[in-house]
Design a protein around this nucleic acid. Structure first.
Lengths: 188, 188
DNA sequence: GCATTCAGTTGACGTTGTCAACTCTGTAGG
DNA sequence: CCTACAGAGTTGACAACGTCAACTGAATGC
C-alpha cells in the first residue's frame, strides 16, 4: 500500500528527475514546468505543491547534485587503497567528470547567488577535500592550497565547457591542468 | 547632419548599452527586448533590425566586453613601466575586476557554447597574455602556464561570484589566489 | 522626380510562469 | 464507522515575453 506521503515523495522525486533530464538534454531553456510535469506524469500545476516556484526547483536540483558529489568525496576519503594525493586528484576528477558529462547541471550548480541549501551541500563535499589536504600540507595550509586547487579545477572545467580551453589553442586540457595543480602538493 | 547609417549605428549602440545596463542592474532575467527598446528610445521590434534575436544581442554584448578586456590587455602589454610579471598580474586583475563589478556580464562572457565572435574577441585578449608569459617562461612553456593561470583566475572569480569562495571558509580570497598563481612564475 | 531600401512601428500569436478556484482522496478524531 | 480536514493534483485564466508579418515613412541612389 502506498501512503499519501510516499506518493507525494515519489512525485517530488519524479519532478526532480524529469527536470534534471530536460536540463541535461536541452539545456536550461528546455526546462519548462509544463514539460517537467508532463514527464513526471502530472499536470503543469503540480510542481507548485512541492516547490515554491521554478527557481526553487532548480535550486533543489543543484543541491542534489552537490550532495551526490559530496557522497562521492566521502567515499573517496575513506578509501584505504588510495594515497592521500590520489584522493585529492580523484575528488577534482569527479568535478571534472560532472562538468563534462552534465555541463548544464554543472553550470547550474555554480549559479550565483548560491542559496544556503546549495552552500551547505557544496560545503559538505569540501569537507573530505580539506581533510585530505590537511594530511598533505598540514591544517594551517590546507585551506589556502584547497582554494587554489579548487579554483584551478573549477576554472579549467568552465573554460573547457565554454569552448575557450582547447588543446588546439593551449596545447593542454583540463586533465593536465589537474595534474599540474595536484603536482603542486608535496608527494606523500 | 546625421546620415541614415550613422543613426542606425547609434541605435545599435543604444540598444547594446541599454541591454548591458539592464544586465548589470537586474541580471539576465531583467533583459527583455521590450525594456531594451524602451531604454534605447525605440519600440520593442526595433532590435530585430540590428540583431537576429535576443541571443544574438547577448552574444554581441559578450563580444564587446571581451574586446574591452583585450584593449586593456594590449595597453598593459605595451606599458614600459611595468615588469613582465606585473603585466601578467594586471591582466588577471582586470578579469577579476570585471567579475566583481559586473558579475552578470562576466558570467555572460563565459556562457557556453561560445560562438566564433566571442571566441575571437576572447582570443584577442589572450594574445598579450601569452606574449608576456613567453618572456617569463619561454614560448614552449607559455601556453601550459597560461592555461593554469587563466583557469585559476577564472575559477576563483566564479567561486567568489557564486558565494562559495569566502574568506570565512577558505581563509583567503581571489586576490590572494591571483598572487599565489603569479608566484608560480619565475621572477624576472 | 521616382523607385527603392531599410530603420522603425504595431498588431498578433504561441509559449511560459504563476495564481486562484476547484476536485478528490487518504487520514485523523470522535 | 462516520465525518471533517489537509493537502496533492487539476484546470482556467492572466500577464509578460520572444518573435513574426504587415505596414509606414524617410533618406538614398539613379
Amino acid at each position: 500500500m502506498i501512503s499519501r506521503v510516499e506518493s507525494a515523495a515519489a512525485t517530488r522525486r519524479a519532478l526532480l528527475d524529469a527536470a534534471a533530464g530536460l536540463l541535461d538534454e536541452g539545456g536550461p531553456e528546455a526546462v519548462t514546468l509544463r514539460e517537467v510535469g508532463a514527464r513526471a506524469g502530472v499536470s503543469r500545476g503540480a510542481p507548485y505543491r512541492h516547490f515554491a516556484d521554478k527557481d526553487d526547483l532548480l535550486t533543489a536540483i543543484a543541491a542534489q547534485a552537490w550532495n551526490a558529489l559530496a557522497d562521492q568525496a566521502v567515499t573517496l576519503g575513506a578509501d584505504p587503497e588510495l594515497s592521500t594525493r590520489d584522493k585529492v586528484r580523484a575528488m577534482l576528477a569527479g568535478m571534472l567528470a560532472t562538468g563534462r558529462e552534465r555541463p548544464h547541471l554543472y553550470r547550474l550548480m555554480h549559479r550565483p547567488p548560491a542559496g544556503p541549501e546549495v552552500l551547505q551541500a557544496a560545503g559538505r563535499s569540501q569537507g573530505p577535500f580539506i581533510a585530505a589536504l590537511s594530511d598533505l600540507v598540514g591544517a594551517a595550509q590546507a585551506h589556502r592550497f584547497g582554494a587554489v586547487l579548487l579554483s584551478g579545477a573549477h576554472g579549467a572545467i568552465g573554460m573547457e565547457a565554454s569552448g575557450q580551453l582547447t588543446r588546439d589553442k593551449w596545447k593542454t586540457d583540463a586533465d593536465e591542468i589537474l595534474d599540474t595543480l595536484v603536482g603542486l602538493l608535496p608527494a606523500r
